[in-house]
Design a protein around this nucleic acid. Sequence first.
RNA 1: GCACCUGUGGCCAAACUGGAUAAGGCACCGGUCUACGAAACCGGGGAUUACAGGUUCGAAUCCUGUCAGGUGCGCCA
Length: 565
Amino acid sequence: MQIKQTLGEHIQAAFAQIGLEGPALIQGAAREEFGDYQANGVMAAAKRAGRNPREVAADVVQALDMEGIASQVEIAGPGFLNITLDPEFLAKTQAAKIHPASPSQTVVTDYSAPNLAKEMHVGHLRTTIIGDSVARILEAQGHQVIRQNHVGDWGTQFGMLLTYLNDTGDDSNELADLEDFYRAAKTRFDEDEDFQARSREAVVRLQAGDKDALAMWQRFIDISMSHCQEIYDRLEVTLLPEHIRGESQYNNDLPQVINDLRGQGLLTESDGAQCVFLDEFKSKKGDILPVIVQKSDGGYLYATTDLAAIRYRTGTLHADRVLYFTDARQALHFRQVFAVAEAAGFNHSHASLEHMPFGSMLGADGKPFKTRAGGVVKLAELLDEAEQRAATLLRANNPDLADEDVRSASRIIGIGAVKYADLSKNRNSDYVFDWDQMISFEGNTAPYLQYAYARIQSLFAKGGVDVAALPATTVSVEEPERRLAVTIAGFDDALQQVTEEGFPHFLCGYLYDLASRFSQFYDHCPILQGADDKTRTRRLVLARQTAETLQQGLALLGIGVVQRM
RNA sequence: GCACCUGUGGCCAAACUGGAUAAGGCACCGGUCUACGAAACCGGGGAUUACAGGUUCGAAUCCUGUCAGGUGCGCCA
């Protein structure tokens, strides 16, 4: 249940009764002694009405009916409403129950989008796992999510790669390392004029639909894509081959995009290139920033492909929202593409087109990230290291664990730690790549959450608890139990917060809060011994609800749990 | 030159979009395992939220200016 929404509706009903307008502005209590939630909207509403906020707050409380929801509503400070939830109401809000969204929307999520000319490196982590998590949460809320992996599988660089592939032989095992393959091809391209010429011809043949060229291109794409799929599988990312709709697939639509723009009178020729000039990209001095959609040599650009993609996503897929998880450096590009799409009427379903940018990865020196050798850290290497460190720790803490269990658990813990390190940060800012921080197992990390989960499982095992036989809910009135119950009940609100603006770190923050409240509770409240039957049952129910919420919350981040660690 | 983003203890950072005494984590100092799991818990020190003005009951958040860093700006994606 969405508690904030429920509280907000009741307060707004009270607003209406006394002739006020505006949002209730519900949020968690700033300090525990204030209660569970607070409403900040009274002060703003009073201001708009030109009235004294304390008096208005008194009127609101007078008109407010919180029967069965809040046990206490107090006025504080300049006009805050401090709300303490009714324990019976809390008991009704079960753990891990997700309130279905209404209306359900069709949401296209564009994420990962690796360049198939090269290998995936740590820079691809953010788009892949942030997009995947938001997609999972939207789905859990009952939205129809259509994943689109807009892979870079087209363009001039493929002429170079195909020519090199041709020269080195079809069964070249050099393709085992795409990074090396690309570098070698580039070196040849820069040094060998004949190779350059043949590469350009290859591009022409490819774009003209030459059968042999296409077959070779397809083979290259398949190999490269299989490298990506390995990474996806390891990361437990939900992307599948069927979600691929790469740049190449829009190739045939591009002339039509240009034609339509011309038909709309939006096209201007400038220095031989076809451009769209829009007033909203005019500077103070009057210069207009162009969006180039066709090069002077007739070739198409990134913007053209993205326009075609918008037509497909809104026209064929009927999207209500289209979410783009890409680097912040593309912010201007997307602003322009969205603006052109609106001007040209390409947004057929009037979808909300939303760029979800994220910061760049930096080195310890604050400069764009490079390894000492000047290269990139491959994603596969990072994951290997994370799994190894997790395995070492697992063995040290659980000497009797079988090798097979160590292997599976270290995968879940190691990779979970890497994913959580990224997901738990606000995606807007740049971040510094740091092995130790990325693969950390203490503090606000995935292992902390997984540890809380494992302890609960161990508690049930030790106590011989028949979890299924426990009552669905119980009423907790005393601290710290009550506070834990309040936190469990806030799950749905946390999810809502994530999908509104595409920030999984809100869910991480929520889960961390939940796990740490559980750890406090667990330390202070004996469960199996030293508690009477009623208390024991009540505490076991809280433990089970915590475990379910942790498990489900982590699953929505694409992170697993283990029984022992 | 123009535009966008960022600036919060030594480090990583949150603040639910204008709310109450600026969370939390690492690191540091101290305490807690013959005890339902110490990957944990309890306590401690450490902040003029880059700077200067302004708006108002109230500003890390909004406005103006300055400084610092980053990114983008006609035929790459």
